[in-house]
Design a protein around this nucleic acid. Structure first.
Lengths: 194, 194
DNA sequence: CGAAAATTTGACATGACTCAACTGGAGTGG
DNA sequence: CCACTCCAGTTGAGTCATGTCAAATTTTCG
């Protein structure tokens, strides 16, 4: 749980009482590879923090294709905020790419923490702001760059987790087919060697 | 200013003292068509609420092409959060598509309001969460749908402002060329009539 | 080790861009 | 009120980016 505490404190210092309140509502869980944290049709009842492992969030289209919206590894949050806050069934899936360990806080508990620890609103406001900025940049990439540029940008931006994610998943994240990503990688390695 | 008050109250009720504190920091401004609220290279010093008018936020690429990230009309917020919170020069532009009226709160003032009115953190947390969800859906659209589907989805999602935005701007928002949007519109009208 | 999944490859099809030319309003000044 | 410009929108031909499908190959994990 130490990682969570350090993560929260990196935004605003919290005193012992506050930390204990938070910890009392936080549940540690082990998840196996391919296990689902959230499934389409079910309400996302937990706010999830990753202690160890690697996760992906994706949506399914009419044709049955998966589209990755986010990856999350150590010290990152992953939840379907839409479902979590609206209480409506999720349209998304969250799956473990690797076995790992997470910390979850239940919806009602998080609300109660927000009420009793005003600072926590500020902390979560900042966390969401960062995610928002990340997604805004991603939209910009999507509407302005070619697939090759997007791939290079992804490699730059997430070097530590790139090796842990299959290319198929990266292709899905970039919005291209695995075959086309394969071609891009081939072209890039040619450029390298020339 | 009434619209701003109603907007904020729609999240959490505020008492008179709090409202007056907020209003004392809020400045109303008139902007003309094509006027810039934020420019690349300058720090975004204000959080902006739209009372009247229509705005667009865009980035410029190396080739000089504009890429629209967001539109904002009545009762919506538009600011470069990245620049606003980091204090770094913006990489974006915010321009008035129509003449209008806005309310702005300066960075330091907003920070002080966050400190004195804890509820305000909660309100702005929710506002950003909604924006985040909106952008997450937009990313999903971008990576999973064809340009025609994205255009139809845009028409559905923003019916009130569609007529106020030139097609060129919509094309830029969708990540396609104006010529291609024109072709899509032609194809759609054919389908309608058959 | 062996089955299942991920990656690669190539031929072909389609989506989307580029460029240049044309069309048709919406101002603007005479 | 006309003539003019100017800009958004349209059209079409040619090109490039990316998708589809099917098959071969390699890797991964149980």
């Amino acid at each position: 749980m130490q990682a969570l505490i350090e993560h929260l404190q990196s935004f605003i210092p919290l005193d012992v009482i506050e930390l204990n309140m938070i910890l009392s509502k936080a549940t540690k869980k082990t998840v196996k590879r391919k296990q689902m944290l959230v499934q389409e049709g079910f309400v996302c009842k937990y706010y999830t923090f990753v202690l160890k492992g690697c996760f992906r969030m994706y949506a399914l289209d009419e044709r049955g294709n998966e589209h990755n919206l986010q990856f999350a590894a150590e010290n990152d949050w992953i939840s379907d905020l839409d479902s979590f806050y609206s209480g409506k069934p999720s349209k998304l899936f969250i799956e473990a790419i690797e076995s790992g360990v997470i910390i979850q806080i239940e919806q009602q508990d998080l609300y109660s923490l927000f009420t009793h620890i005003p600072k926590l609103n500020r902390i979560f406001k900042v966390i969401v702001e960062h995610k928002f900025i990340e997604f805004q940049n991603r939209v910009l990439q999507n509407i302005s760059s070619t697939a090759e540029q997007r791939y290079l940008n992804f490699l730059e931006q997430y070097p530590p987790i790139v090796q842990r994610i299959p290319n198929t998943q990266i292709a899905s994240y970039l919005g291209i087919t695995p075959e086309f990503l394969s071609k891009i990688r081939k072209d890039l390695s040619k450029k390298q060697n020339s």
